[in-house]
Amino acid sequence: MPRTASRPSSPATTTPTAGARLGAAIAVLTVAPLLRWLVAAESVPPDRPRRAGCDACGTPIGPTGPLAALSPLARCPGCRSRYGAPPFAVELALLLAVAALLAAARPGWESLAFAWWTACAVPLVFVDVAVHRLPDRLTRAAALGTLALLGLAALVGADGAAWWRAVLAGTSAALLLGASTLLLGRRGFGLGDAKLALSSVAVLGWLGWPAVFTGLVVTFLASAVVGLVLLAARRIRWRGHLPFGPFLVLGTIVTLAAA
């Protein structure tokens, strides 16, 4: 994939340093409990409030609850029942995403923008798989934070064209997916998918139009392959619903790492 002009050619921005790797490891250890809490809190049907405690015994989860409630073991410290994402799954997903960010080795504000998007995208993947929904508070945070930080990157790097391209790409993708919902109903994409596309495709747009094409190809190809495998295994039916958010995140991260 061609590199965009916004990426400096300095060796310092193309090879992660030992300090960058250490900082990434510390970030994973610090952020993972917060993301695990978001997954547990948001993995509820649309008509129910956020989960505030263990479904079995009511032990609080989150910042006000015991720290053990946010451990990678995914067990309630009160009754030892399972809840939220599978054990170590959030941590592994976050580690892989951070590895992709290190491979991309983007400078300054760009790295911060992509890190913010990643922190929002990881819990969205687990929530979508669990309950087939993408909460507005996370998709909104992903879009606003990512576009704002990319705007700062454009100001610092004097590359306003990259920011406008990101806005155009993300907005266009969101409108197209949203239109499919209005026109096709349940057979189209969900509005949550459209809201997630706003930030995900904006990230691709910042990298360049070839990245938008590559990311969307990876997204739809992965979705098709997994769908066919699940159909062959009789895990879903032709009219079944396959969450699209995880594939959109996967396509974006893979393209970001390869850019």
Rank of each mutant, 00 (worst) to 15 (best):
L101K: 00
P60I: 08
G108R: 14
T118A: 13
V129R: 15
L152C: 05
A148Q: 03
R51L: 11
D47E: 14
G58T: 04
V125K: 02
L155V: 10
G151F: 09
A161L: 13
L149Y: 04
S71V: 02
V98D: 03
A69V: 02
L67Q: 07
A56K: 03
A85L: 11
A56Y: 14
A154Y: 10
L150Y: 01
R75K: 13
L96F: 13
A141L: 05
P87M: 11
Y83E: 12
C79E: 01
T59C: 09
A121R: 01
P45K: 01
W117C: 07
A153M: 10
P63N: 09
L144D: 07
A166L: 05
G65S: 02
A52Y: 11
E91I: 05
C79I: 04
T118D: 03
A161E: 14
S111K: 12
G58E: 02
G157P: 07
V122R: 03
A105I: 01
A153C: 02
A68F: 03
A56P: 01
A97H: 00
L168A: 15
A119H: 04
D159P: 02
L67T: 15
G160F: 15
C79L: 04
G157D: 08
V127Y: 13
P77N: 06
L67A: 12
L112C: 12
A52V: 14
R106V: 06
